[in-house]
């Protein structure tokens, strides 16, 4: 102890600065406590599960009972995966909102000032949040997606309608892609939250960006402008994880989503370093 004090030397009563990896662990632990004690952390994934599993199963049940009455053309268009994941949009939206609330709640309550006073390395704080929100929402999304897949396909197979199993062509890739997309939505929400610092603005932007904007864009007759912008909205890039879309390869979709996340991350890091809390 005394040697440490001596080493910190001429300084008045200061501690030695902690080693970088110990500081990183401490920040991660602090962020984890804040994350798991957030009420939205419980409510939002629960709502996501209700939408993606509960509502989806209702829809699947309807399609399954209708299967024997379909004609040949409708049978050819029957897509067990798309029917199963009609509601995944809502889950993605909720993950975006959850990511936003992780940080805007801190601004709302003022805890952010304590956080930044304890760890003046603001980039590190943001990185710790991203490390928890990204993989954390991926894990939650996996539970929801696989729950939806097994219950939905189970209903279809019970009704002797076409159904898929995990070993079928590309099914696992689709499921992983959707879970990854949910995690990306969580990160988009987190970085948007850092940028706007207000729960109201962040939640409104998430609903606008992820749900309403693509819906509205669909209603415009395709023209030169929309053809080159609309497919790159995050929701449309994410849709590529579920079904093939003309002119958008899976690689481009993943790269596009990653670009959205990275650009917002850079903007958030820049803004967090420069602004007051």
């Amino acid at each position: 102890m005394s040697t440490v004090m001596a080493a910190s030397g001429a300084g008045s009563a200061g501690h030695a600065p902690p080693a970088a990896h110990r500081r990183a662990w401490a920040v991660l632990a602090a962020e984890w406590i804040k994350l798991r004690s957030l009420r939205s952390m419980l409510v939002t994934p629960l709502l996501g599960a209700i939408a993606c599993v509960g509502l989806a199963d209702l829809a699947v049940r309807h399609h399954a009972t209708g299967w024997p009455h379909l004609d040949a053309v409708q049978r050819a268009q029957f897509d067990p995966l798309a029917i199963n994941f009609n509601f995944v949009t809502l889950g993605i939206l909720l993950f975006g909102v959850l990511g936003a609330l992780v940080v805007t709640n801190e601004y709302g309550s003022g805890v952010i000032r304590t956080t930044l006073a304890a760890t003046p390395q603001r980039g590190l704080v943001l990185a710790a949040k991203a490390v928890l929100v990204g993989p954390g929402s991926f894990a939650l999304a996996m539970v929801i997606i696989f729950g939806a897949f097994f219950t939905g396909q189970g209903i279809l197979s019970g009704a002797h309608a076409p159904h898929l199993s995990l070993s079928d062509h590309h099914v696992l890739v689709h499921l992983l892609g959707m879970a990854g997309y949910m995690a990306a939505a969580g990160l988009l929400g987190l970085f948007t939250g850092v940028l706007v610092r207000s729960a109201a603005v962040a939640v409104t932007s998430m609903f606008g960006l992820l749900l309403v904007l693509p819906l509205m864009a669909d209603k415009i007759t395709p023209n030169a402008l929309t053809r080159h912008t609309v497919p790159y909205l995050p929701m449309n890039l994410g849709d590529r994880m579920l079904r093939p879309i003309q002119g958008l390869s899976p690689g481009v979709a993943v790269a596009g989503l990653a670009a959205w996340v990275l650009v917002l991350a850079a903007a958030a890091a820049f803004s967090l370093r420069g602004r007051d809390a």
């Binding site: 939408a51 509502l55 829809a59 009609n86 709302g108 729960a199 109201a200 939640v203």
Partner: peptide
């Protein structure tokens, strides 16, 4: 704020879509 926004947007935007699906 967050609870109010989520319930309101759910009512306005999400529920109509759910009803269509």
């Amino acid at each position: 704020t967050s609870a109010a926004l989520i319930s309101l947007f759910g009512l306005l935007v999400v529920l109509p879509i759910a009803f269509i699906e």
